[in-house]
């Protein structure tokens, strides 16, 4: 399935956000994820079903000031 992750389009074999993080080898610490410009709460990552062409933003919280 084609997914756009942080602006890069690529084929992935995965169903949900937790699986996607595993494929990308990204630890969940300090991360937030938005799908199609809507933040997905952490509790929903394991059930969140991805669909073709989803636009996904994966980024770190920042706390500096």
């Amino acid at each position: 399935m084609k997914l756009i992750i942080n602006g890069q389009s690529q084929e992935y074999v995965c169903q949900d956000l937790t699986a996607l993080l595993q494929i990308l080898n990204k630890p969940a610490n300090g991360l937030a994820i938005a799908v199609n410009e809507q933040i997905v709460p952490r509790q929903q990552w394991p059930q969140f079903q991805l669909t073709e062409n989803d636009n996904i933003s994966i980024f770190q919280a920042i706390a500096g000031g």
Partner: peptide
């Protein structure tokens, strides 16, 4: 907390 439900960031995050 709905956005960032954790009290620490990954590694040091200050300027």
């Amino acid at each position: 907390h709905c956005l960032y439900p954790f009290s620490d960031t990954e590694g040091p995050q200050n300027c």
